[in-house]
Design a binder for these strands. Structure first.
Lengths: 195, 195
DNA sequence: CCAATATTAGACCGGTCGTCTAGTATTTAG
DNA sequence: CTAAATACTAGACGACCGGTCTAATATTGG
């Protein structure tokens, strides 16, 4: 299928560039040039830049979802440590990128939430899914006696997610992975400690 | 001083617009039109859009700094509750704005950190100052026996700040103040509880 | 071979930033 | 008080880049 190939190539390349530069700062020409696709083709595959942006979000979320599931279903590790492993893998990734980029969904949330309702809705749904995955894992931890049963798993999952996004932002701004490390340490030694 | 008046009017109006729309999405014409200042004046007062952006950051940080200091030096309240009051006043503000805008410094951090080193540095310094204020207040809480002495005040201050920024982002994306409320509840009932 | 579809090419319009020339007000100096 | 220097305003302008569209070309299937 030529069609799908070119289309997903544009999405793949575009995801990387938008990850680095943001949505508004990224021109279509830039993406097409890097993808080696002529400009005229773009509007054959996408109705508008907005439609393309949504496709980028979906593409990224799909990959992320898989990564998250792989970690959180790792039966070889206790539930709380699955979350820890996942977060630490994220920390390693950000460090590898010299503390740039951060999280694409968080970036677009910050940039687009007040600007485009369709983006906002989609991003919100993605965050809700992530949160649900984490909450399930925390509930499992409670059943296994790894975590105090009186905690509200859903509540804590939300705080874990938002706190993590905030730590990623700090890491970007300070250009140091320390904020992410600090968040891990405080979270796992206070809120998520076995008690 | 006519000079200062026009200049600070441009900055004042510009701060509001950039707060709402972000830096890249805001054109100079838009600001000048709303301020009722002709375009020719802009480049008399600012060398470039970048210089202007930095002035906006400084202007905002100045106002914020004062608000923060007012709360954290309120002798009528215990140190931990000063922080709580401050965060709750922020929550009230965001709610009033229908959960839009968030925090200007956080917004610009997300948008500009990877794009402009001068912006990044300035924003990073501002975050560091805020963090220091919070850490001082936490240390005071420890001396007053309001908080466990074995906590690392600086560490917790950083997590509080980054977590708060993350909660603001979630609030923007979900269009609900719940993430900010949840963060408050979890923070003050686990990490910051008297123990 | 023809018709329907997939793809490309590049013109187009509108908006951006930053500059520039002219003109007007205000201050300073003799 | 006048004259010269400075501060500020006015808005047209150019160069550029954004997203979108129409027309031409290639490809496919019947």
């Amino acid at each position: 299928m030529e069609k799908k190939d070119t289309r997903s190539e544009i999405v793949r390349i575009g995801t990387g560039i938008i990850y680095r530069q943001g949505y508004n700062a990224t021109g279509i020409d830039t993406i097409l040039k890097e993808a080696g696709v002529p400009k005229g083709s773009f509007y054959h595959y996408f109705k508008s830049k907005e439609e393309f942006g949504l496709a980028v979000i979906d593409h990224f979320a799909e990959g992320f979802e898989q990564r998250l599931a792989t970690f959180l279903r790792d039966e070889e590790v206790t539930p709380v440590n699955r979350i820890r492993n996942f977060l630490e893998s994220g920390l390693a990734r950000v460090s590898q990128n010299a503390c740039t980029r951060g999280c694409l969904i968080g970036n677009l949330g910050q940039e687009m939430a007040d600007q485009n309702e369709r983006f906002r809705e989609r991003l919100s749904r993605i965050f809700a899914m992530w949160r649900q995955h984490i909450a399930d894992c925390l509930a499992e931890a409670q059943q296994a006696g790894e975590l105090a049963g009186d905690l509200d798993a859903d509540l804590v999952a939300g705080v874990l997610l938002s706190g993590w996004e905030g730590a990623i932002l700090q890491t970007k701004v300070t250009k140091s992975p320390q904020p992410m490390r600090d968040f891990l340490e405080v979270m796992f030694s206070t809120t998520l400690r076995r008690q």
